[in-house]
Design a protein around this nucleic acid. Structure first.
Length: 186
DNA sequence: ACGATGATGAAC
DNA sequence: TTCATCATCGTA
């Protein structure tokens, strides 16, 4: 039984145990969950529609495959933490870390439905819509610190999950064709 | 098809 | 300290 306040707040924040599982499993289960950004001014959310897995130390598409650096260190740490970084000098990428401590993995959140049902396509557009940038980098997603993921009971049936190659990782040799991109359509 | 735009990491 | 690279996007 959930606590009374949890029900009243309509909040069911995904716990660390959700993220501390195989990355490909977590990636698929993130579809249909609500990504919430709350500040003093406003509360924004999207229903996660497209994700992409970066899994383990050998994945050549992953920032982690050359070992730990100041930027990617959070990928090696505990699951359920945000990894936010800038690409092309202008776009913020939002990732959530997965797997046990010491195992570098994360899931890039690439698309989502707005409350009005508009599909936001692309990780840079998604962070711009939610007004996200560096402040949340490395913070836990499993506490009420302004950015978290909620289960609102939406179920995406496995047969409705579209599985594709990852985008923008053609340099990743034998890892570039892995079907680590997951999405669904309403 | 390409330029914007700046952090990152590896080489030197 | 320099330099190539980049989990992208808007304009053409």
């Amino acid at each position: 039984m959930k606590s009374r306040s949890s029900i009243h707040n309509q909040e069911n924040i995904l716990p660390l145990s959700f993220f501390d599982r195989p990355t490909l499993v977590v990636a698929q289960e993130l579809l249909g969950k609500a990504l919430v950004h709350e500040t003093k001014q406003k509360k924004l959310y999207l229903i996660i529609q497209e994700v992409e897995a970066y899994d383990g130390p050998h994945d050549k598409a992953s920032h982690a495959h050359r070992g730990t650096t100041p930027r990617n260190a959070v990928m090696f740490d505990e699951a359920g933490h945000w990894y936010l970084y800038l690409v092309y000098g202008m776009h913020w990428m939002l990732n959530i870390t997965t797997g046990p401590k010491g195992y570098p993995a994360a899931i890039l959140i690439r698309g989502g439905y707005t409350p009005e049902g508009t599909l936001i396509v692309g990780p840079g557009k998604l962070t711009k819509y939610l007004d996200l940038n560096c402040p949340h980098n490395t913070l836990p997603a499993t506490k009420k610190l302004g950015l978290w993921i909620e289960d609102r009971g939406m179920i995406i049936h496995p047969k409705d999950i579209i599985r594709k190659k990852r985008i923008g990782v053609d340099y990743a040799k034998e890892w570039k064709d892995k079907l680590y991109n997951f999405s669904f359509l309403l």
